[in-house]
């Protein structure tokens, strides 16, 4: 039972590392997304064969609970709203693969799967996003989480300039001891490289995210 609780918590925290950068690129584009927060480090590499979806591989390592998961992820752009000054997107994503204990964790490899939604709305100076995910595996009853983010750009840079965003992320993980987490962060964005640096006020842990689009 303790292992199950630990596993649920670990997976919940680990998978909460959320890709707030757009998960579907232009046709033929590759994207590399690294995310490291208070709990885990993950890597997602995806390819976009069609403007409506991307396929990729996700690996994630929960550093605190010694759990790793691996598997392909499919992301579908369900709807994109276009405006003169804004863009909004609704994505659905799903992944399947396996998770296992690493280092001192004896958890044997077992199948896992997850589904989720990601929505964002963005102008050149305002940003908002919301993400939710549900994960299940053989030893899990199911894990639900959600995270929202708002951002503001103090200036509007033109093409190729360094773009700076000030953001605040709030996540909700009902299965965790600390259900609500708050992380202020700075996003630096230039050309096809995006770097996010933040600090979790809840756990005193850094957030370091990096995205590069080829």
């Amino acid at each position: 039972m303790l292992r199950k609780i630990a596993t649920i918590s670990a997976i919940g925290l680990g998978l909460a590392a959320s890709a707030h950068a757009r998960p579907v690129s232009y046709v033929g584009g590759w994207t590399l997304i690294e995310e490291s927060d208070r709990q885990s480090t993950s890597l997602l590499a995806h390819y976009t064969p069609d403007p409506a979806f991307s396929i990729g591989w996700k690996s994630e390592w929960d550093r605190q609970n010694d759990i790793a998961l691996h598997g392909p992820q499919f992301t579908y752009l369900a709807k994109r709203w276009f405006g003169e000054d804004y863009q909004a997107n609704l994505y659905a994503f799903t992944g399947a693969g396996w998770l296992e204990g690493v280092d001192s964790n004896p958890l044997s490899a077992e199948g896992m799967g997850y589904v989720g939604l990601l929505a964002d709305w963005e102008t050149r100076s305002l940003f908002a996003s919301y993400k939710t995910r549900y994960l299940d595996s053989h030893s899990l009853d199911g894990n639900f989480l959600q995270a929202a983010r708002v951002g503001w750009a103090p200036y509007e840079g033109d093409t190729g300039d360094l773009h700076t965003w000030l953001m605040l992320e709030v996540d909700h993980r009902p299965d965790n001891e600390e259900e609500l987490g708050v992380t202020p962060l700075v996003r630096l964005f230039k050309d096809t490289a995006l770097l996010e640096l933040g600090w979790s006020l809840t756990d005193d842990q850094p957030l370091i995210n990096f995205t590069y689009r080829f």
Partner: peptide, 16 residues
């Protein structure tokens, strides 16, 4: 073009 708000948008069209 509608929906152009960031350098990712610009780069997508540039590459295409």
């Amino acid at each position: 073009v509608l929906g152009v708000v960031c350098d990712f948008c610009a780069k997508a069209m540039d590459k295409t």
